[in-house]
């Protein structure tokens, strides 16, 4: 219970700053409208207007919340095309688009994490890979993903790969890196004594990996998986921008085409909730795994 008050305080502060900023940023439009109508308006009227514009520069929190509710619960439960009345998710609801994004993110994350783990094992066991691979892995992350994403999609499309996979590849592109870095650190975490011990048993490299390095790397792996899963979501959303179809990225782009700022923000909230849920899921797997390994006290 003691943690409730600080959390509420921070939320209240954020909301306050948000409202003040909304008034400030939407004021110009309110003044322009008033000028066109030939009336003078004061700050009190501006404040009221700033809360209910249709396309505000910065929507107020309650507008975003209402839009989010409308695009999830209302659309699915009461809408004609919602799951309650049509039996399938409405393509206007954020639930549908979030699931589309989730599937690509999940697939990309699995590919990226698997690739990252394999790469880390190679780097730890092979001097040439240690020297040769890491610079390329770092270089890969210095390229802006918005620049390379459309090219990856075009290239994959030209070889007949389309659908969820191009998105997943871009998600994997972003998520493998933190996993490589974390896993290399984790696989190297056993101290000299622990590796010497295996030497006295004349254990092979694979036994060293299975019995010592891999179990020892678990805390590092989960830390990097949490970063990786969030990066994977960013990659998927970026990939969805040029692709069209469905997904939160597509909704963001559509919102910005038509100046639907409230819808953009509602979509951003959906993306944030999705990221939080995925990081939370990784955290749960972490807790269960570490408890089973006797490493959680």
């Amino acid at each position: 219970m003691r943690s409730v008050l600080p959390v509420l305080t921070v939320i209240a502060a954020i909301l306050l700053i948000w409202y003040v900023a909304a008034v400030g940023m939407n004021a110009q439009w309110a003044r322009d409208q008033a000028a066109r109508a030939g009336v003078e308006i004061g700050w009190s009227e501006i404040a009221v207007d700033a809360m209910r514009q249709e396309r505000p520069v910065l929507p107020a929190p309650h507008q975003v919340a209402l839009e989010f509710w409308r695009l999830t619960w209302t659309e699915e439960v009461e809408g004609r095309r919602g799951i309650v009345q049509s039996g399938s998710l409405s393509n206007r609801s954020l639930v549908y688009h979030a699931l589309v994004t989730l599937s690509a993110t999940g697939l990309g994350f699995l590919i990226g994490a698997g690739f990252g783990i394999l790469l880390a094992i190679g780097i730890v066991h092979n001097r040439a890979m240690d020297r040769g691979v890491m610079p390329w892995a770092i270089a890969s992350q210095t390229i802006p993903i918005v620049a390379i994403a459309p090219m990856i999609i075009v290239v994959l499309n030209s070889v007949g790969v389309s659908g969820v996979l191009p998105k997943a590849v871009i998600a994997a592109y972003l998520s493998f890196f933190p996993v490589v870095v974390g896993m290399v650190k984790g696989l190297r975490s056993p101290d000299a004594m622990q590796t010497d011990l295996l030497r006295t048993y004349n254990a092979g490299a694979m036994q060293g990996l299975g019995k010592l390095r891999f179990p020892a790397s678990m805390p590092y792996l989960f830390a990097s998986l949490k970063v990786g899963v969030a990066a994977s979501l960013v990659g998927t959303i970026v990939a969805e921008l040029p692709l069209g179809g469905a997904g939160l990225g597509t909704r963001l782009l559509a919102g910005s085409y038509y100046g639907q700022t409230i819808q953009i923000w509602a979509t951003l909230i959906a993306a944030a909730l999705l990221a939080a849920a995925m990081v939370g899921a990784v955290g749960m797997v972490q807790r269960v795994t570490l408890r089973r390994m006797g490493m959680a006290r």
Binding site: M193, Q194, D196, L197, T200, K211, L212, P215, A216, M218, M293, G294, M295
Partner: peptide, 12 residues
């Protein structure tokens, strides 16, 4: 068999 300065048991 070798016994090190610290027990060095694997915590997992």
């Amino acid at each position: 068999g070798y016994v090190f300065q610290a027990a060095g048991l694997y915590p997992w």
